[in-house]
Simulated scan of single mutants.
Amino acid sequence: MYEGKIYIAPNYTLSHCKDVFFNLSASSTPEKWAEALDIFQDRMNARFFNGIEILSQYGEGEHWEHNLSFSIIALNCLLIETLQQFYDGLESTPPGQNGRAFSKFFRLSKHFDFSPDIASVFYKNVRNGILHQSETKGHIALSFSVFAPMVEITNGWVVFNVKRVSDALVNEFMDYIQRLRDPNEKELRSNFVTKMRSIVNKADDQDISTNRNRL
């Protein structure tokens, strides 16, 4: 909330987004979809990509010794789960289904070449470790290199290259945007609309509650 208004994205108010997303369908005009995707990109940049870029830039050059891979991978994990919710048209990941959501994301993404075992290790030891213990679990290491592969196993350790993961997620997101511009992607579009409407509805409920408390 800023100056008494709720924003769905930094440059878009709740009232504006209600008008956009409750009048959006899979068959809406390219102009309506362009506006919807501008809002979506503004939201995702503010919540994920801008922060990842700032942290990544700080961890390079003269500040290379300040390894911010942990903070970046935490944002990566949030982003993966968020994107899968959009893909499936879910308000939230169903209880007990987080592991399946991550497995599905890695299996279907062309930007991640994770075997099922590596995908499971990432979910259990990186995502769950960060969420529940604020640290990775098991023999997991994080690197940040333009030269190393996305994942490698060495001396009993599984090393995830956070830069490679971040770059893959940028490409994943841009592919998603392009697919949403395609009117033939009806299911993907419908799921996107469902997810965005759930976000707007939740914000609207908060707005109503806030205004009621002011009376």
Rank of each mutant, 00 (worst) to 15 (best):
M1L: 10
I8N: 00
L14V: 04
K18S: 05
S25P: 02
T29N: 06
T29M: 07
P30R: 04
A34W: 09
E35R: 09
D42V: 07
F49W: 11
F49V: 05
F49S: 02
I52V: 15
E53S: 12
L55H: 02
Q57T: 15
Y58F: 15
E60V: 05
E60H: 05
N67R: 14
L75Q: 09
N76A: 12
L78R: 09
L78P: 01
L83H: 09
D88C: 10
S92L: 09
P94D: 07
P95F: 10
L108R: 11
S109Y: 00
F114C: 01
P116R: 01
I118T: 14
N128G: 07
L131D: 03
L131H: 10
E135A: 13
H139P: 08
I140A: 00
V146N: 13
V151R: 02
N155G: 10
G156D: 10
V165S: 04
S166F: 06
D167N: 14
L169W: 01
L169N: 00
E172A: 05
F173V: 02
L180D: 04
N184Y: 10
N184M: 12
N184K: 15
N184A: 15
E187K: 13
E187P: 05
N191I: 06
T194K: 14
K195Q: 10
R197M: 06
S198F: 02
D204A: 08
